[in-house]
Structures are given as structure tokens and as C-alpha cells.
């Protein structure tokens, strides 16, 4: 059994496995697989991996405007004058802004909260980059804030908090639509997704635009 081996491991290997186990999404099996892979890896490759890890710790900073992770602040997106500066899309994590960038259908700015309201984890609005967002809304000519937090409980709690907070500012606040994923089968959609898709249905007046099969 795997466990018996772990008990008699050489300490450096055990330490490495332990370190991998702490990473998100890595279970005991994967941690061992990764560790043994590293042991067999050429030294040069291992060095470049170690260096890459240190580089993100040493060279990455938060953009002073949008709070995204970047090598130079303001980040390339915030400094890009060709982007639509009237819109800010609020996301939970840096990866979420990357996901929206990949759609190529948004050319506004971002704001990264670095988390989400979760009382269980002791995370409230004060622990997020909310003050920084309010600061930006004072200076800039922003007319719309798009709340793109995840459609789960904590994401919704955060979105609702921000909605209430932004209301008095007179800025249009929108929320990402929730519904079916493209290529999905209705039959396999769970009832809450389907209910949201129904509630958020759109009129087929602009059908021509979407009929591009």
C-alpha cells in the first residue's frame, strides 16, 4: 500500500511530496507522481522550475490600478489607451480576467478582488480589494461595472454586496448571465441551471446575429 512506502521515505522526498500535497487540487497520489517525476528530471530542468517559482515570488506585483498580478504597474491592460475605459469588469481572481480576455469580446478594464466574501473562512468585504475599486470609480469616467464573480453562493454574496455598495454612485451595474453552456444538452442540465436560463431568456429579435452556424 502507498502509505507503507510513505512511512519509510527518504526525508527530502517526503518533504517534496508534503509540499505538493499543499497545492490546490493535488491529492496524495498526484503528489507522489509529481515528486518521482522530479527525481528523474535532468538537473537543468529542475533548476529552471525552481527559478520560475522564485521569479513569480520576486518579480510579480499587484497592478496599483486593477490589482491584477503583473510584472510592471500599471499592468499592460490598464496602460493600453485603446481599451474602453468606461467599463470595469470585476472578477474574483486573476485567472478569471484571463478567461474573459480569451473570449475577445470584451475590451474594457478589469478589477481583481482577490477573493470572495465567505464568513466561514473569515473573509469579509474588507479583506477584498473593494476600497481600491471605489477609489477608481471616483476618478475615472466609468459608466458601467460588470460583476463577473462566480455563480456560486459566495460569488453571489459578493456580487450582491457590491451591487448595494455601488447603487448610490449612479453607475450602471450588471451581472454576468447564468445559463446553459454552449454545446450542452438540455436533458443533462441540472434544474437550477435550467431555471436560471429560463429566467434570463432573451427575445429572439436579434436572432440573425446569433444564427451563425
Amino acid at each position: 500500500m502507498d502509505g507503507h512506502r510513505a512511512a519509510s521515505l527518504a526525508p527530502p522526498v517526503a518533504r517534496l511530496i508534503e509540499a505538493f500535497r499543499k497545492l490546490p487540487g493535488v491529492g496524495p497520489k498526484s503528489a507522489q507522481r509529481l515528486a518521482y517525476h522530479l527525481i528523474r528530471m535532468p538537473r537543468a530542468e529542475a533548476e529552471s522550475l525552481a527559478e520560475a517559482i522564485l521569479a513569480v515570488k520576486d518579480r510579480i506585483v499587484l497592478c496599483q490600478v486593477c490589482q491584477n498580478i503583473t510584472e510592471s504597474t500599471p499592468c499592460p491592460i490598464c496602460s493600453d489607451q485603446s481599451r474602453d475605459r468606461t467599463r470595469i469588469c470585476v472578477v474574483e481572481e486573476p485567472l478569471d480576467s484571463m478567461a474573459i480576455e480569451r473570449t475577445r469580446s470584451y475590451d474594457g478594464l478589469y478589477h481583481v478582488l482577490h477573493g470572495v466574501i465567505s464568513p466561514v473562512n473569515g473573509i469579509g468585504a474588507d479583506d477584498l480589494k473593494v476600497r481600491e475599486l471605489l477609489e477608481r470609480l471616483r476618478d475615472e469616467s466609468v459608466t458601467e461595472v460588470i460583476l463577473a464573480t462566480n455563480p456560486n453562493l459566495e460569488g453571489e454574496a459578493t456580487a450582491m454586496y457590491l451591487q448595494r455598495l455601488l447603487k448610490p454612485l449612479g453607475i450602471a451595474v450588471s451581472r454576468l448571465a447564468r445559463g446553459l453552456s454552449s454545446g450542452a444538452d438540455l436533458e443533462y442540465a441540472d434544474e437550477s441551471t435550467l431555471a436560471h436560463a429560463l429566467q434570463g431568456r432573451t427575445r429572439s429579435a436579434d436572432q440573425d446575429a446569433s444564427q451563425s452556424l
Partner: peptide, 16 residues
């Protein structure tokens, strides 16, 4: 999937 007792700190969910 059961984490060994040794790395309890690493795995708050002992049994996945």
C-alpha cells in the same frame, strides 16, 4: 482516498 495520519495538517479532509 485516505490520507495517512502523518500528513493530517496537509489534508484537513482525511477521507476523500
Amino acid at each position: 482516498e485516505v490520507a495517512a495520519q502523518g500528513d493530517l495538517q496537509a489534508a484537513p479532509n482525511l477521507v476523500r
